[in-house]
Design a protein around this nucleic acid. Structure first.
Lengths: 329, 329
DNA sequence: TCAAAAGTGTTATCCTTACACCCATGT
DNA sequence: ACATGGGTGTAAGGATAACACTTTTGA
């Protein structure tokens, strides 16, 4: 079957070798006390990653193996993010003798959710806060100053740099849309669009890598290895979107928690504050949690009831939203 | 940078070659008069596909090249579906004789939306109806008989075949959940879950391929090459979900259309009927369309206003739903 | 007593759903 | 006349958002 298929299209073969090395790369998220964090390795800010090998039974198990080997962290929830081909790096540096052995790199990225655990090998790994990489993404204390003081003027300058008037307007529109300028609403899910806009406007370090010309060097947020910050942005965006329609937050919570702890976690992820009374009702009314009967011995304030996630909801409901006016027939 | 990264993890290299061939595979959807369809090649039901090669500038352009070469169809809208490793076929037939040259196949699948166009080379390609592959997915004329007459009894038998009682209950629950049995609601988005359940219960041809034992041969729906039907199920599920929160239906419509044509397309995709008056209001109130001023010269009934898609909405709105009770501070 | 956090009640508003009905055209 | 599809009005019910307020603890 497979052979027939291959034969039927072999006429189109260009004759070039088309093998690729396949890299697995992980955005591992946890929310410890210091805020939402991502697991990194090495001294630079590098995501755990490694090649997919014959010994791996599947892509996911290969990813688990690499993360565990490099960081000691075991992974629970995993979902695929995106697959891309490293376009420019194809044999650019060490092209062996013989063009036809050039290799492309395929990167398959994953989002993993876990509870932060303190491991013995802190030297090899570190939990780094999201918002060190994306300081413009944290709106929990209002609009961060970096937007109005740095990004807004620089984005506008970038827009004005465009030659033609329609292009200027287009750039201004995109900037205003992505960053909620000119009184527009902030949309916390546009993490990737914002990163790409800043990259395009050369406001972040990664955009300068290729060229020597450090025209306007200033920078926003901590840079990462290669395109890892872009992958992280993809993961953050996916998570911010997903917590709204799937009960994935609970993957990041301890087995037992208070509703305020849950709220703080959601706020940390979305980068926005939520309305406490309504949040509680939203959670309880959906039967996502059940009381344990215990309460916290918190340091301050009235003791809070403790809850646990009702795993049964995963079986009971599809949790898929309808947006079509279905007819009852 | 890359070299340093590689060196830092080289200690974990197993020494096995870890190259893979990369396949691109497309679920190309259109909705001609005969209903929602997928583009296939060859006489079997095979999705267009081909290896990612050095000549391709990107994954997407490689996909476009293969689809165009194999079918003559140009692609507009494209989005990535999922990447997977062909787990079992890894040297399963021609194994030994040099273990370390075994190759794995990575398949990167895409969903593409287009308008069906009649091409000259109908011999090499064909638009095949979705519901020939998934006859249980079309609920536009009520619950299809195949569910109550064939699938339900067979799924229940499969559940009873399980050894332990908890496993039996679990299987029954999954079947009822996926297929809306026992008075449960039908959820049209669970296309992949349903396919996988039928595969697991060995009710479809693909599940029998490996073994000679054709215990209970009967089959549901037309089979496809390799795991193509599974990929198609993934694409259908993605599309059914996506039309609810992104205006992607319009990629499948002609430039000018009536609201009923739009409704019929949505119904064809989701496999369910929608409530006409409310559907119209939903569309118009979101400013997704604008009148052209023209009307149809339809054969029967009152002439309908013609509309076109307002491309501007893509700029104006993020169309991302909020589900968190944000506080206004 | 006060600060801090937990928790309840209630209302205005919007969106979804459903039902009922009228309009325009061809046969 | 009537069948077919186009199109409007409106009201019930539920979800969401906003505001005001009470309760329980530790310092």
């Amino acid at each position: 079957m497979r052979d027939k298929e291959k034969a039927s299209r072999s006429d189109a073969r260009s004759g070039e070798a088309h093998n690729a090395s396949v890299d697995l790369i992980a955005v591992v998220v946890a929310v410890p006390n210091q805020g939402p964090s991502v697991l990194t390795v090495g001294q630079g800010s590098t995501l755990p990653s490694g090649p997919f090998e014959l010994g791996h039974r599947s892509l996911q198990s290969g990813l688990r193996a690499w993360v565990e080997h490099q960081t000691g962290q075991q992974l629970g929830y995993i979902e695929q993010l995106y697959t891309f081909a490293d376009s420019d790096r194809a044999g650019a540096d060490s092209d062996r003798a013989g063009e036809r052995h050039r290799q492309r790199v395929i990167s398959i990225s994953y989002l993993a959710l876990t509870r932060a655990e303190h491991a013995a090998d802190e030297a090899r790994r570190a939990w780094r806060r999201w918002y060190d990489y994306f300081p413009w993404e944290d709106h929990r204390s209002g609009i961060p100053p970096i937007i109005s003081e740095v990004l807004r003027p620089r984005l506008l300058a970038w827009a004005d740099n465009a030659g033609l008037d329609p292009l200027k307007r287009e750039r201004r529109r995109r900037a205003a849309f992505a960053f909620g300028l000119d009184g527009r609403d902030w949309n916390e899910e546009l993490v990737l669009q914002r990163y790409e806009l800043l990259y395009e406007a050369a406001l972040i370090e990664e955009a300068m890598r290729g060229s020597e010309a450090t025209a306007s060097p200033p920078i926003s947020g901590t840079a990462m290895t290669a395109d890892h910050r872009r992958i992280l942005a993809t993961g953050v965006a996916r998570l911010r979107s997903k917590i709204k329609y799937r009960p994935v937050v609970f993957e990041l919570m301890p087995p037992v928690f208070t509703l305020l702890q849950l709220q703080r976690t959601v706020e940390a992820l979305s980068g926005r504050l939520v309305h406490k009374p309504n949040f509680r009702r939203l959670i309880e009314q959906q039967d996502l949690v059940e009381e344990t009967g215990e309460t916290t011995a918190d340091t301050v304030g009235r003791p809070a009831k403790l809850f646990r996630f009702r795993h049964a909801v995963l079986d009971e409901r599809a949790v898929a939203g309808t947006k079509l006016p279905l007819s009852r027939t």
